[in-house]
Each structure stands twice: as structure tokens, then as C-alpha cells.
Write a protein that binds this DNA or RNA. Structure first.
Lengths: 213, 213
DNA sequence: TGACTGACTGACCGGACGGTCAGTATTCTG
DNA sequence: CAGAATACTGACCGTCCGGTCAGTCAGTCA
């Protein structure tokens, strides 16, 4: 009933209509949200008839899901391409932090769509997002932290995922609140993500360093 | 043309219909978003006729704006009620952190509505949100940090707003990503906000302490 | 050639939407 | 008491929505 995911079957031409529809939908959904985007709008923007979209996608919801998956795939690939530099754990983490933040800001469209999904957090969606989008990258990050703990560069008493979460929190918050931050007093780094990530990594690494006192 | 904000004018009874509509709208908008909530739904849930809502509010958009303002007002009051305990700056900040996080989680409805607004980030809205909702509380927080810097408890080389932003980032990220975090490996604190805030404040204060080395 | 398939379209459908309006009930004002 | 004002309602309007459908067209295969 629901088997094949493969479009563009053997026979006919099918230039790239499906992927054009998908990209258009991704653009519109990410900038306006599900409800605010009509199938007519997608059709017009993609240069196809509305009926044609329904020929390729069973419903608006399925189109949205496919667009979301596409965004997740791109985001995941972006994450996987971030191989950390060699060197001390601290530098590896700092390297990841700045690259991850840059990647989020560069791919604002995908980021926005995914963040909205996290925020709306439909019943069972959270686990799916965790598994399909975040888990792998997060696990790599956590492994690096664990290594740092084993090597004595980081406090072994902190939960392994904790530092990872702090880094993500700093990045996600920056990406989504930038415009607001810019108008708050005492904030002079809203336009300088690299400086921001350098600062918080410095604080984080010093704060989570091996117990000293 | 747009002057009066005051409902419940001199003349008639007006028990509390307006505020009941407003509360209902706030509930629905925060849990489903603007587009997904119909005026019929608000009317039914509030136990009034749809036409009556349009008698009190000029349009759906104005109803949403008023509900948003209400959420902002509640959120701001909640923030203002958080007077930090006396004691060392570090303890004051830690006290604020845990209270702020608790407040966000307790008032999940208001939080959600406001966060969505931040994420969608309509053209000129960011500045308005910064000014009307966040500025005062943020400024108090920044002042406390500045005091800590002057007293030598915090590194004076960090931008004053930076530590405040880190605290907010940690709290906001936790509040909005909790469900996802719960399903990530190495995260065992998703159900324990107090422990979480204690941990990050420990790391933050140590990491942003006066330059030592 | 002719049967068949899948991409694609314009016209259309029922329904829900935001919003309006004429009219009624109630209550304050003179 | 008349009358002005406001709270409130049911019925209604035009529009747009997601989705359907009959049908056209181009290419494949026997």
C-alpha cells in the first residue's frame, strides 16, 4: 500500500519535477509554516499544477513530511561532514562548536523547519527526531567529551551528555534568538557568531575542566 | 483610530467575557499556533458566539496580539517577581537560574507562545519583544553580572550580557528540547531541571570566574 | 499499429475559514 | 418613561482551502 519511495521510475522522462516540488515546499514551509502555505502556493512557486503535486504526493501532510525529511537529511549530512580537527579535545570541541553554529546559520531554512518541529513537538515526533536527525551527531560529540574525560581534560563527574547539551544550547539559542539578542543591552556579539562561540567554549572548557580547587 | 486598550467600559455589566475569551484564545493559540486555531473554535471553547468575539476584537490577528500581550505580561510579571536572594553573586545567579527555569516549565503555555514568536521572528517583531518582554529582566540579570565583575567574582573581560545569554540559552534550550533530549544517549538529566541548572551554573561560574591560570 | 502507462492539467467539489449584519436583550442615562 | 448604548446572537457572505476527476499528451512495448 505504501511501499515504494522511488519516484522517477524506468519508463518516462520525469526530468526533476518531484525534487523541484520538494525543494519549493521546503522553502515555503520553512519560511511560513505548514498552515500558512497552501498547495496552490506551492504549485505556483514550483511551476506545476496543483493536481500534479497530488499525483506525486498523497496529501499536503505527506508533502510536508517529505520536505521535513529532506531538511533532516541535509542537516544530518552537514553534521556528518563536520569532522573535527585533530589536537587536544578542547580544540576539537571548539572546532565543532564554531562549525556547527556556522552551518546552522548558513542553512537557516532547514534549521528553522527542524526547530519549529522540535518546538511544536507533536506527540511521538520527539523520539523520531532524536533518532533520525540528532542522535548520530550528538553521539559523536558525546564520545569526544567522554574521551576528554578519560584523558583528564574534562571533569569526569559531569554527565557525558551535559557538555554536549550546553554547546548545542548555546548554538541553537543564538541561531533562533539572534534578532532579539541584537536589541538587548550588554550584548555586543549578536553579529559575530565566531567570537560568540569562541567565548562560550572558553568558559565551558574552563568551567568543565578537571576538578581543581 | 486605535486608541483605547481598555475594555469593560463604564456602562454595562460585562462580567468577564472579554478576559474569558482572551484566556481561551491564549490557551488555544499557544498549544496549536495561530493558523490552526479557528475563530469558531475559540468561540466554542469560550462559550460565546463567534460574532461576539468580533464585537470585542477587531480581527483574529488583533485577538492573537492581545493574547500574546497577555502572555508577555504574565511572563514579565513572573520574571519581576523573581527577586534574587542575597549572598554572593554566584549564589544570586544560581538562584535566578533555577527559579527562571522552573517558571518557564510551570508556565509552559506562555513560554510556548512567546518562543514561537521569537522563532517566527516577523520583521519588526524582534525589537518589540526585546523591549516589552525581555529587556527589564535581562537588564537586571546583566546588572547582577556586572556587579559580580566589579566585585572580582567574575571575569571582567567577558561582555556583560554574555553570561546572561548563556544562562538563558541553557534554560530556553532545556525547556523547548526536553522531549528530544530525553531520547539522546548520555543525557540523564532531562527529568531533573534543578540538577540541570545546578550543573550548568557550576560550570558557568567556574568557567567565567576571575582569570586565574 | 494499437494497447497501455504514467506525467500532467483545468475545472470542479464540499467544506471551513474570517468576517459582517440585522436584530434582540439588557442596562445605564436623562 | 423614552432613548441611547452596549453585549450578544444566528444566519449569512465571499473566498480560499485540500482534494478529486475526467481527460490529454508523450513515450514504451509487442
Amino acid at each position: 500500500m505504501s511501499g515504494d519511495n522511488s519516484h522517477s521510475p524506468p519508463g518516462t522522462a520525469t526530468p526533476d519535477t518531484v525534487s523541484r516540488i520538494l525543494r519549493t515546499a521546503l522553502d515555503l514551509f520553512s519560511s511560513q509554516g505548514f498552515d500558512a502555505v497552501s498547495m496552490n502556493a506551492v504549485a505556483a512557486a514550483a511551476g506545476v499544477s496543483k493536481a500534479n503535486i497530488f499525483h506525486h504526493f498523497r496529501s499536503k501532510h505527506e508533502l510536508y513530511i517529505q520536505a521535513l525529511r529532506e531538511a533532516c537529511r541535509e542537516s544530518r549530512e552537514e553534521l556528518e561532514a563536520l569532522n573535527m580537527e585533530d589536537g587536544p579535545i578542547g580544540e576539537q570541541l571548539a572546532d565543532f562548536a564554531v562549525k556547527h553554529l556556522t552551518s546552522m546559520l548558513d542553512n537557516a531554512r532547514d534549521t528553522r523547519l527542524i526547530l519549529r518541529e522540535v518546538l511544536e513537538n507533536a506527540p511521538g515526533r520527539a523520539e523520531e527526531l532524536a533518532r533520525d536527525v540528532f542522535r548520530d551527531g550528538f553521539e559523536r560529540l558525546v564520545e569526544t567529551v567522554r574521551l576528554g574525560q578519560r584523558l583528564g581534560e574534562l571533569d569526569p563527574d559531569l554527565p557525558p551528555g551535559f557538555i554536549a547539551v550546553m554547546m548545542l544550547a548555546a548554538n541553537v539559542f543564538f541561531a533562533q534568538s539572534r534578532e532579539v539578542l541584537r536589541h538587548l543591552p550588554g550584548v555586543d556579539f549578536a553579529d559575530d557568531p565566531k567570537r560568540y562561540s569562541r567565548m562560550y567554549m572558553q568558559v565551558l572548557l574552563r568551567g568543565a575542566g578537571p576538578a581543581a580547587t
